[in-house]
Simulated assay, not measured.
Amino acid sequence: MLASFTWMGLEAVHMYLALVKVFNTYIPSYILKFCIIGWGIPAVIVSLVLVIDKDAYGSLADEEIEMVLDSTEAFCWIQNDIVFFVTVVAFIGLTLLCNMSVFIMVLIQIKRIGANKLAANSHGSVLDLKAVASLTVLLGLTWSIGFFSFGPARVVLVYLFVFLNSLQGFFVFLFHCLMKENVRKQWRIHLCCGRFRLREYSDWSRSVTVGDRCKKKNLVNSDSVTSGSSQ
């Protein structure tokens, strides 16, 4: 769980560097450093808990869990409430708070970019709605519903929490693979067959090829003119 939220926090950092702080963001060994942070921080937290109290983790299977999960099998979980709130709740809350800040900054940046383009209001609204939905899922902001699952609306929020977060990976795949035109084109090139298959050399690649040929032709002509003038 800690690793999942750490990686969602790193996704927010990556989004901030890519969309907000665009310039002067070169980081050597970028992916390696992200991997060290993404797996290192959870490992350090769990190790510290075990060093401080070796009995902090243990089997958990009370009557309420047996009733909810319909199972009598115990599973490993934190035994101390203080440890749970410090190492899990506080860590998740801090990560979601940082992700929410990046979420707002990225939306402002997207709005500024969209304002510079001439587009219809309806089309722009659909794109903005898609961006909000995809960013919400990617940054794990749906997990914040768990902090508000109390009171009269607790049952509804718990169902919404389970639905959104259990399908988080599917939503990431939906927004960032299925709904991207360039990804769909690659699928049609490599996976589809028959009339659904897209030729590898599409209009875009042909235009690039023609452009390259024109450039080469101009270079040849310029070289011949230069050699003729020198003669």
Rank of each mutant, 00 (worst) to 15 (best):
G9P: 00
L10A: 02
E11S: 07
A12D: 03
H14L: 09
M15I: 11
M15P: 00
A18S: 15
L19V: 02
V20P: 02
V20T: 10
F23N: 15
N24H: 08
T25F: 08
P28V: 11
Y30A: 03
K33T: 05
K33L: 14
F34M: 11
C35G: 08
C35K: 15
I36V: 11
I36H: 09
I37C: 08
W39H: 10
G40E: 07
G40H: 08
I41Y: 00
P42R: 00
P42T: 02
V46H: 04
S47V: 04
L50G: 04
V51E: 11
D55H: 07
G58M: 10
G58I: 06
D62Y: 00
E63K: 01
I65W: 11
M67G: 03
V68E: 07
D70Y: 01
S71G: 14
S71W: 03
T72A: 08
T72R: 14
A74R: 13
F75Q: 07
C76D: 15
W77Q: 12
I78W: 04
Q79F: 04
I82C: 12
I82W: 08
V83T: 15
F84I: 08
F84G: 04
F85E: 10
V88I: 10
V89N: 15
A90Q: 00
I92N: 00
G93N: 08
G93A: 14
L96N: 02
L97N: 06
C98R: 11
C98G: 10
M100W: 05
V102T: 07
F103T: 00
I108G: 05
R112A: 09
G114Q: 14
K117A: 09
N121Q: 15
H123F: 14
V132E: 03
A133T: 05
S134E: 12
T136V: 02
L138Q: 06
L139V: 01
L139R: 00
L141T: 01
L141I: 01
W143M: 00
S144M: 04
G146E: 10
S149Q: 06
F150W: 10
A153Y: 13
V155N: 05
V156N: 07
L157P: 01
Y159S: 08
V162G: 03
N165V: 02
F170I: 07
V172P: 00
L174Q: 04
C177A: 12
N182C: 11
V183M: 09
R184S: 09
R184A: 07
Q186L: 11
R188S: 07
R188H: 11
I189K: 14
L191Q: 03
C192A: 14
C193I: 13
G194L: 04
G194Q: 01
R195S: 15
F196S: 08
R197P: 00
R197A: 14
R199I: 06
R199M: 10
E200N: 05
S205T: 05
S207P: 06
V208M: 11
V208P: 02
V210H: 09
D212C: 15
C214H: 14
C214M: 12
N221P: 01
S222K: 13
D223I: 09
V225L: 15
T226M: 06
S227M: 08
S227E: 10
